[in-house]
Design a protein around this nucleic acid. Structure first.
Length: 283
DNA sequence: ATGTGTTCCTGTCCGC
DNA sequence: TGCGGACAGGAACACA
């Protein structure tokens, strides 16, 4: 579900609530999500101050005062919602845990955050901050698409000789980390590149154009608070609204909006995932 | 090495 | 209304 813009939006929503806040209680309501939690995670979290909330690709990283970092992934259906209030605000009793609320953090300032994930493809781990970047889940990630290391030189090198469709290549987190199904489809449409094209067959000139398009799609989506289809909510429970700006994703059968294009948006399946594109203007 | 298919899990929607 | 099947923002893993 959540791709980079959604994860970043959630992170930004959580920052004012959790950064500098002391965890008074950690409630772990099942032993695992996709993988088992560290057996002593509760004890290692309680009493800690969350010093910094970072993001790497689709992961949220919470650095604790005691030198450990909590690594969080939202999977397909994960949400983190703020459900208590901070001191000084209007106060009310936190609601009872809902179905699929798996992990709850209470803070000394009265704030509460709840991790809810119906499908349980999400993950939470706790590791030494110093080695967080070497974590199995993070070590092989490619560059941040909004960072300096993501440029046309990098993408050309990664695409060279690859026979995989460009759609699949951009979903590969080792090539660039943070894109998912929505934003790959949208970026390819904005670029006029067919998702079916083999990555190795795209000219350096077109790759040079694709790089800023990817950045712009993600930046636009973050500015819109992400895309809310079914599960996704911002940390305050509000909807994102980038879904209204989709040009292809989930728009099968609609007319292509590209200026001068008479095409109709098609849906195909690549590597088991839906791809939406315009066969007319994407080549 | 590289590309593809399967799998984890719950919920929703659509057609009959 | 009920029932079955397709499908959903991800990505590790097994296998050709």
């Amino acid at each position: 579900m959540p791709e980079l813009p959604e994860v970043e939006t959630v992170r930004q929503g959580l920052v004012p609530v959790v950064e500098g806040s002391v965890i008074s209680a950690a409630e772990i309501r099942r032993p695992d999500l996709r993988w088992p939690f560290p057996i002593d995670m509760k004890e290692r979290l309680e009493g800690q101050t969350i010093q910094k909330l970072r993001r790497r690709a689709k992961y949220i990283l919470a650095d604790m005062s005691g030198g450990e970092t909590m690594i969080i992934h939202l999977g397909m259906s994960g949400r983190i919602l703020i459900s208590g209030v901070m001191e000084g605000d209007f106060h009310y009793e936190p609601s009872m845990p809902q179905k699929h609320d798996h992990f709850i953090l209470d803070f000394e300032n009265g704030a509460r955050i709840v991790f809810n994930d119906p499908r349980r493809f999400g993950a939470i781990d706790l590791v030494e901050t110093e080695y967080a970047a070497q974590h199995k889940l993070l070590i092989n990630l490619g560059p941040e698409p909004l960072g300096n290391k993501f440029d046309d030189v990098h993408l050309q090198a990664k695409f060279k000789n690859r026979k995989m469709p460009v759609k699949s290549a951009l979903l590969d987190q080792k090539i660039v980390a943070g894109l998912g199904n929505i934003y790959v489809c949208e970026a390819l449409h904005r670029s006029g590149i067919s998702p079916l094209r083999k990555a190795g067959s795209i000219s350096s000139e077109r790759i040079g154009k694709l790089v800023p398009v990817i950045r712009n799609v993600l930046t636009d989506a973050i500015a819109a608070g992400g895309s809310s289809l079914k599960d996704y909510r911002k940390a305050d429970g509000e909807l994102g609204y980038f879904q209204h700006a989709f040009t292809v994703y989930d728009r099968e059968g609609n007319a292509c909006q590209t200026a001068g294009c008479k095409g109709k948006i098609a849906r195909i399946v690549q590597s088991g995932r839906s791809t939406f594109y315009c066969p007319q203007c994407q080549r």
